[in-house]
């Protein structure tokens, strides 16, 4: 068997695959963060908590109302989006003119409260959520045993990322959005309702987090800590990719997922820190991130 640094090449392919799966989550989450930061100038620390809320909603839909995975994949992001809109209208909209720090503190506080609420209600051990029947079982790829559900995660995440990118970069709505970011006063003067667009953007951004949450529900335990475990890494992804860069966050998300996967093979102990090492190096060489533009 061919080996690379003592690791069979088959195993390496397997790990690449898994890195891609984790990278998909990073991509969707950091995409939401990038959109929000790009449009609202808010560092949304509540992102992880809303991702968790998405997963919890999926579980609650199943547990209390008997609503299956597919419906929740649609409904949960909408619910999370609506929660996001409420947050934006009631709290965030007063902070745009202030320093980033205020938005960060507010959303961080919200994250703690949302998490605390679920922790109090359901404990930390989490709830089981089974894989939808359509995706039970696995593909035997020869070099590895890939659960069908994991393959679906990659497909669904990448589709959503692509769609978002297309919407923002190629459609009229996206053009308005970009204009509103560049110069809100001028855009408003052209008769475009900027506050409405900002509100919808925040709702959409956190809706993406809710979507990722539902995707993650069957793959891991649904519990109040699942967001905070992930969010710090996702922030690192956004910093590496460049704050506000949409394509950057998707590419970096996938790339870092793969690098992290490789680290788990060659130096498992460092797998929790490798992303931050890369972040430090990137910040030294390109302070605006790999895909970011200096302002």
């Amino acid at each position: 068997m061919t080996e690379i640094f003592g690791v069979p090449i088959q195993a390496l392919f397997g790990q690449l695959m898994l890195g891609l799966v984790n990278g998909s989550f990073y991509a969707v989450l950091s995409l939401g963060l990038a959109v929000i930061f790009g449009m609202l100038n808010i560092i949304n620390f509540a992102h992880g908590a809303l991702y968790m809320a998405g997963a919890m909603l999926a579980w609650m839909g199943m547990e209390y109302l008997g609503i299956g995975y597919w419906w929740m994949l649609l409904l949960a992001p909408i619910c999370v989006g609506l929660i996001g809109i409420a947050i934006e209208r009631l709290m965030l909209q007063w902070l745009y003119k202030l320093d980033h720090l205020y938005g960060l503190l507010l959303t961080f506080g919200l994250a703690l409260m949302i998490e605390g609420l679920f922790r109090d209600l359901y404990g930390v051990a989490g709830q089981p959520y089974s894989i939808p029947e359509e995706f039970a079982g696995a593909f035997n790829l020869g070099f590895m045993f890939l659960p069908k559900y994991r393959a679906w995660i990659v497909f669904a995440s990448l589709s959503v990322c692509l769609l978002t990118w297309y919407m923002i970069e190629k459609t009229r709505l996206g053009a308005y959005l970009r204009a509103a970011t560049e110069n809100p006063q001028l855009t408003q003067a052209f008769g475009i309702n900027v506050p409405l667009m900002v509100m919808l953007t925040y709702g959409f951004g956190v809706g993406l987090a809710g979507f990722a949450g539902v995707l993650a529900a069957p793959a891991s335990q649904v519990g109040p800590l699942m967001g905070s475990n992930l969010i710090i890494v996702v922030f690192a992804v956004v910093v590496i990719g460049g704050m506000g860069s949409i394509l950057g966050s998707v590419v970096t998300g996938l790339g870092l997922g793969i690098i992290e996967g490789m680290t788990k093979v060659f130096w498992p102990e460092a797998s929790a820190t490798v992303v931050f090492m890369i972040m430090a190096v990137v910040l030294m060489i390109r302070p605006a991130g790999l895909f970011g533009r200096e302002k």
Partner: peptide, 19 residues
């Protein structure tokens, strides 16, 4: 294989166990 406390994903560690 040693994993960090509170790891979010175990699949790659388990793949190593499998192989």
């Amino acid at each position: 294989v040693r994993h960090p406390l509170n790891a979010s994903d175990f699949s790659s560690f388990l793949l190593q166990a499998q192989s």
